[in-house]
Design a protein around this nucleic acid. Structure first.
Lengths: 228, 228
DNA sequence: CATAGATAAATCCTATAGGAACTACCGATA
DNA sequence: TATCGGTAGTTCCTATAGGATTTATCTATG
């Protein structure tokens, strides 16, 4: 690149971050087929970037489970979940999130209740169309609700464990297409959890979270049966 | 590098993997001070490698929590744990591992029982000296015990969540220096868990794991009070 | 016709070059 | 003396070059 001028000299931001976000959005939106090869050079060409930042972005992405790496072979998009895997994912969430709800409720603040209420409002108003952009708004509101609770446990390790699951949740939700089908259920169940928070009833919060996740589990299994 | 011949032409393995393991061992062994700058170029010089694989290794390492990154600033060794953080870490383990014990016990096999017994043997025979090499043997036996159980839940997401914690456990264990002080307790408590597995009593396995982790929590707090 | 070998392309991986920003230090000037 | 400015060094970040290996294609031979 001695003839052509450098493309981004004043753009004081890390290119690898941009690549990372771009790939993330491709993966969440399902623009990439499961099992597809993620060629480093190819992505670099597509994004008009050198392979170096692509390499770094993929390395960061690997631990989310959305991308698999084989040494000296390259990266691939991880395969889609099977129905049993969907159930297992919710089982793992059932291990963590009810405790989160109980802990967060015990340390709840009016601010938290307001924030949670806001995510439910967002959920209610988010379009449930099939478009990826729309779907993402819905997903974000849903994710925010659960993440806020995880953050309010006050335990960073728990939050980290929840995040580890969350990376997978993204793909799971897209795959199952729940954003379109179970909005009413999700809003009702989130509201039940919120009510427990507002009342300061930690045991009820825990129970409501269990009920919610069991609902998610059942509905996702049904959905995945319809879309083999 | 046109004059000097390429250093590793036949070495058919990824250099970034080697750098990754090397950094990991530096971090676990405590050879790196907390808060120290991890200069990409500097590490490259030290390991006689170009910055590219170092960059990739650090990107992979970031999610373990042992290393922090600030865009355009570089990487630093994460600060050591405080006593409340140690307690929180065990709290997070208490959320996951008792369930693991219950699930794994329900699906237990003679093979698993044998493997667990072996880790206890290793624990018993591992030197408890202050040398890093010795300490690592002890830590590995301990880690194997807990990981085997997590693997036998049959739920890859749970295993993943446990691993997320595990990355932190490494530093925690080194920091607190438990490997030297509580070997007898750990062996006894692991044996109690093993007995429950051998008897096929899932509830007892769960209870024994709770007791073990509570023991770890108390002892680590005591230790960290002694070594401020 | 089928198969073996060679050529070309794609790919991963590492090294190197160089730009931009920050830091430290040192000398010159008000 | 104190402050300002410049220079060298370090560091992060990205681009580019090139080696090694695999894959695909195509040709030549049995």
């Amino acid at each position: 690149m001695s003839a052509a001028a450098p493309r981004r000299t004043l753009n004081r931001q890390v290119l690898a971050d941009h690549v990372h976000e771009e790939l993330m959005s491709w993966l969440i939106d399902g623009r990439l087929e499961a099992g597809a090869n993620l060629s480093i050079d190819g992505i670099a060409r597509d994004l008009d970037v050198s392979p170096t930042p692509v390499r770094e972005a993929l390395a960061r992405l690997e631990h989310t489970g959305m991308v698999r790496r084989v040494a000296l072979k390259g990266y691939k998009v991880a395969p889609l979940f099977t129905a049993p895997e969907l159930a297992q994912l919710v089982d793992a969430r059932l291990m963590i999130e009810p405790v989160n709800a109980e802990l967060a409720c015990a340390r709840s603040t009016p601010q938290l209740v307001d924030d949670l209420k806001q995510t439910i409002e967002d959920l209610r108003h988010a379009p449930t169309g099939a478009s990826y952009a729309e779907f993402r708004e819905y997903w974000k509101a849903d994710e925010d609700f659960h993440r806020l609770i995880a953050e309010h446990t006050g335990n960073p390790f728990i939050l980290n464990a929840y995040r580890t699951l969350g990376g997978q949740v993204q793909r799971f939700r897209f795959f199952a297409g729940l954003g379109v089908t179970d909005a009413d259920n999700a809003i009702a169940e989130h509201t039940a959890i919120l009510d427990a928070f507002a009342a300061g009833d930690a045991a009820a919060a825990r129970a409501a979270m269990v009920a919610h996740l069991n609902g998610v589990k059942q509905r996702s299994i049904l959905d995945s049966a319809e879309h083999p």
